[in-house]
């Protein structure tokens, strides 16, 4: 069961019209290291991992990632809101506009649709936790690139928040992983 709160986890302000930035950002919506992949990855790992800390952490981080997904959606929506078809076309979003209008689609920046293959689930606690830590670090790296791709300081501020969250998540996953490794004879 989930309950929705009608607010963002952290404010999203856009000061500057920038259609190309929307195209870059959409990879964090439906790309391999995006927030949808993160949330669904953790959500589905909960059932078999057994360790009590790991189950709680996967549940709580999966939930937080949905709030991040909503922040990314808000950024993309606001950046596309007033763009003309011509502006979308010149940012490389011509085919996107023809197929989807301004609807938000779970794709990466090149329009490749989301796939559950991104979740890379292995049915093994150690392998899955390494995957989770790598996923957080890859998302952090993407946010660092995204921050470089805009000079809108308000947008950079929201992206910096998301980058910092990846670091916190990575740290918590590491704590669980290290404990599980200590308890496992290898």
């Amino acid at each position: 069961m989930w309950i929705y709160e009608k607010r963002l986890q952290y404010p999203v302000c856009i000061n500057k019209k920038d259609v190309t930035m929307a195209r870059y950002l959409i990879t964090q919506y439906g790309g391999p290291d995006g927030e949808l992949a993160a949330s669904l990855r953790y959500m589905t790992q909960r059932y078999t991992i057994e360790d009590r800390s790991a189950i709680a952490l996967l549940t709580d981080i999966a939930t937080e990632e949905l709030a991040h997904l909503e922040m990314i959606a808000t950024m993309v929506y606001k950046l596309l809101e007033d763009a003309t078809p011509k502006e979308l076309e010149s940012a490389g979003l011509g085919t996107y506009f023809v197929d989807h209008g301004r609807d938000l689609v779970y794709t990466n920046g090149d329009g490749i649709p989301f796939t559950s293959a991104y979740l890379a689930s292995k049915g093994d606690p150690i392998a899955n936790l390494y995957e989770d830590i790598a996923a957080e670090e890859k998302a952090r790296a993407v946010y660092e690139k995204l921050i470089l791709m805009t000079d809108d300081t308000a947008l950079q501020d929201s992206l910096r928040f998301l980058r910092e969250r990846e670091i916190i998540h990575s740290q918590r996953f590491r704590e669980v992983l290290e404990r599980l490794k200590d308890n496992t004879t290898r």
Partner: peptide, 10 residues
């Protein structure tokens, strides 16, 4: 949120 995640592992 930060307290919750911290308490998950501590």
């Amino acid at each position: 949120i930060d307290a919750r995640l911290w308490l998950d592992t501590h």
